[in-house]
Design a binder for these strands. Structure first.
Lengths: 213, 213, 213, 213
DNA sequence: TCGTAAACGAGACGGTACGTCCTGTCTTAAC
DNA sequence: GTTAAGACAGGACGTACCGTCTCGTTTACGA
C-alpha cells in the first residue's frame, strides 16, 4: 500500500508472444492517459470524469484509450488497484499493540498522504457495488489488510497478549471500520484515531471483573 | 429511522409567510417524481439515473422537477434524508448491552429492509464528498445515530455498566464503523453482526487484569 | 391608411347582446397588450415574438391574452389591419399624373413613417401565405389600393390622358410592384421612387411611333 | 435560375488548403440533411421547421447539422441560394421584347415549377430583413436578375428599340416588381403575366404624341 | 347589501424543441 | 497496425415557451 505506480498495460502480462506486427503501442501515450485520468479524477470526481477530456489533456485520440481499456471504469480501476497491499507488518517485534496501531495507521496514511485517498472517496459507490471495480478492490486492497490484521491477532493470542476467545474474524471490522466510518462521515484521519481505536478495541468498554456480559 | 416520508418542499421552512400567489405546486406531481426516482434509482443506480426518464415515468414535465430540485443530487438526497432519525432508544430499561445492540441493529435494518439501503450504497461517493448532500446526510442521519449512542454510553457509565474512563466520543466509530465497513467491503449485515460488534466493544480483546496497556 | 387605432375586441361586433354577467373585460389590459405587442414586434420581429414576454411587459396574465385572441397570429393581425385604407384620392383635380404619384406614395409613406412598415416587413411570409392573416391583409389594405388606382386610371382614360386600350387591371401591379420589390430586395422608398415609377409607367420604354410592338 | 443543386459546404471557398485532418465530413449526411430540410420546409413552412425533425428524417445527429450550419436560417438559405443565376439570356437574337419576356418569365417559372417557389414564399420575411439571409439572397439571385435585365435594356437602346432616355436602373423594378407583388398579394404567375408586364412597360400608359408629361 | 359570476395577476402544469455536450465507433492521412 | 484528429449517430442535459389550468383577489351586476 505504498507505490502508486500504475500497473503495466494488461494485454501484455509478462512478455509479447506475438512477433509484434505494425507500429508498437506508444508507452508515452499510455502514461499520459493515466496521468491525465489521475488529475481529472481529483478535479472532477468519478462522476464528472469525461474520456473526451482525458484524451484532450493527454494529447491522445479517444480511440487510443478505447484500444487499451474498454470503459471508464476499467481505466480508473487500474489507477486504484495501484494502491496495492500494505507492507505486511511481518517485521513485528513482539509488540501486539504497536503492530495493530501500525495496521490501522497504514490505510490512514494512504488516504491522507497519497493521491489515492481522494480517488477512493470518489469511487466509494463503485467499490461498494457488486460490479467489477468493487470485486477487484476487495481482492487486492481489502484482502491484504484483512490478512495482515488476522496475522497480528493470531500472534497476539499465541503470545498471550490477547484473549484466547477473541472474535478474530471481527478484528478487521472493529479496527478498520472506524477508518471507513470517518472516510464517509467525516472526522480526523490521523495517528490519534489509530491509537484510540486500538486502545478501545483492546481495553473494552465494560467494567472489568464483572460477568454481566 | 423508519418512515420514508420525504419532507415537504424546502422553500417553506416552517409556515407559509407569503399569501401564496399563482397556482400552487401539485402535491401529486411531487410524490410521483419521488416515487419514480426511487424506482429508477434502484433499477439503474445513481450514475445511471436520467432525469428525463424520471419525468417520463412520473408523467411530469422536466421543468416541474427543476422547479423543486436544482439537480439530480438534490433530488436523490431528499429521498435519502427521509431515512430520518432512529427511534431514540430512550425507552431503554436498564440493559446497556441490549440498548447498544439495538442502536447498531437499527441502521442495519434500514439498509437491509427498506429501499434506502441500495439507495445509500449508490450515493456513498456523494455522501463522502464535502458538498451539500454529504452535509445534509450527516446533519440528519449521522447526527441522530451519534446522539443515540452517546446517550446510551453516558447512561451506561452512570449505571456502572461501563468504565468511567471509556472513550465516549469513539463509541459511535467503534460500533457503527463495522456496519459501514461491511456496506463498502461486503459481508453479512444482520443481527449476528450487531451482537458480535457489541460484544467485542464491551469485552475488549486484551487479556484482562493485565496492565500492559 | 393612417390611424393605427386597433379595432375593438372582436366578440362584441356592435352591441352587447348578453346582460354582461361577471366582471367586465379590462380596457386597460386590452390596450396594454396591444402596446406591448407593437413594441416587441419591432424589437424582435414576428418570429421572435413571445406571448410570455408580451404578457410580462403588459403586466398581464397569459390567460388574459388568450381570452381575447386565439393565437399570436390573430393578435398581430389586429395590429396590422389597423393600417386601413388609403385616403381615397377622390379629391383629385384633373391631374392624372399627380394622382398616380400620390397613390404610389401613400403606401411608401405608411411603410417609412409609421410603425406598420417594420411590422409588415416581419409579417411578409404570413401575408404571402394563404392563411387567415394574408386573406385579411388583402381584403383590407390591398383591395383599397387597387380600387384607388383603378379609379384613377378609369378617370385618366375618360379624360383622354391615358390610352383607351390601356391594360387597366395591370395598373396596380405595374405601379405598386416596384414598391413591394424594394420592400423585399432593398432600395430607397421615397418620393423619387414614386415619381420615377409613374413616369416609366406613363411614358413606356419603347421608342414611340414604332409599331414593332 | 434552374439547377437546385445546393453549393458545397462553405468552409472550402475554392480549394482545401489544409491537409484535411481527421475523418472527412460525410457527403451522404450533407445531402440527406438538405433533402430532409427541403421536404419538411414544404410540409410545415419555415416557422414550423424543426431541426430535430430534420435530423430524425435525415438519419443524422443534431450535431452533424450544427457542424455545418449555425442556425435554421443558414441551413434554409443554402437551399434558396441554390436557385442560382438565371440563364444569362445572352444568347439573344435581336428581339428585345422576347428577351424581356424571357427575363420576366424566368423567375416565374422557378417559383411555379420548382420546390423553391413555396420555399421562397415562406422565407420572404427573412429575405426582406437586413440580416445575413437577405443579403445572401440579394447578392446571388437578385443581382443576377438585375444584371440580365440591364444588359437587355442596354442592347435595346443600342439597337434603337428603346428610348435613349429610358430610366434603365428602374427597369428591374418595373419588370420584376409585378412578379413580387403577386407573390405576396396573390394572382396568377404565368406567361400571360410576363407578356402583359412587358407590353405595359414598353408601350406606356399615356396617350402618345402628347407632351403633358 | 349582498351573493354570484366572470375576469384579473400570478404562476405551476405536461409538453416540445432548443443548442450543447459526451459517448463509443468509424474513417482518414501520416508514421 | 498504431497514431492524432475529428466526424459520425445517438441520447441526455438544463432552458425557454407553448397553451392550459388553478389559485386567491377584484369588480361589476342583479337580487
Amino acid at each position: 500500500m505504498a507505490q502508486p505506480a500504475p500497473a503495466a498495460h494488461p494485454p501484455s502480462p509478462t512478455s509479447h508472444p506475438l512477433p509484434a506486427r505494425g507500429r508498437p503501442r506508444s508507452e508515452r501515450a499510455h502514461q499520459a492517459i493515466l496521468q491525465a485520468t489521475q488529475e481529472l479524477l481529483l478535479e472532477s470526481g468519478y462522476a464528472g470524469l469525461r474520456l473526451e477530456h482525458v484524451a484532450a489533456r493527454a494529447g491522445v485520440g479517444k480511440a487510443t484509450i478505447y484500444r487499451r481499456w474498454s470503459s471508464r471504469e476499467e481505466l480508473v480501476l487500474e489507477l486504484v488497484s495501484g494502491i496495492g497491499a500494505p507492507r505486511p507488518t511481518i517485521d513485528d517485534l513482539g509488540d501486539t499493540r504497536a503492530a495493530l496501531v501500525r495496521a490501522v495507521l497504514d490505510p490512514i496514511m494512504t488516504i491522507t498522504t497519497t493521491p489515492f485517498g481522494p480517488t477512493i472517496r470518489t469511487l466509494l459507490s463503485e467499490i461498494a457495488g457488486s460490479g467489477g471495480p468493487g470485486e477487484r478492490f476487495r481482492e487486492t486492497v481489502v484482502a491484504a489488510h484483512r490478512a495482515a490484521i488476522e496475522t497480528i491477532v493470531a500472534r497476539g493470542v499465541e503470545r498471550g497478549d490477547l484473549r484466547p476467545d477473541v472474535d478474530a474474524p471481527m478484528a478487521t471490522e472493529m479496527l478498520l471500520g472506524p477508518v471507513f466510518y470517518r472516510l464517509i462521515v467525516g472526522g480526523a484521519l490521523d495517528r490519534d484515531l489509530a491509537e484510540r481505536v486500538v486502545h478501545a478495541y483492546l481495553a473494552g468498554a465494560a467494567v472489568p471483573q464483572t460477568d454481566w456480559f
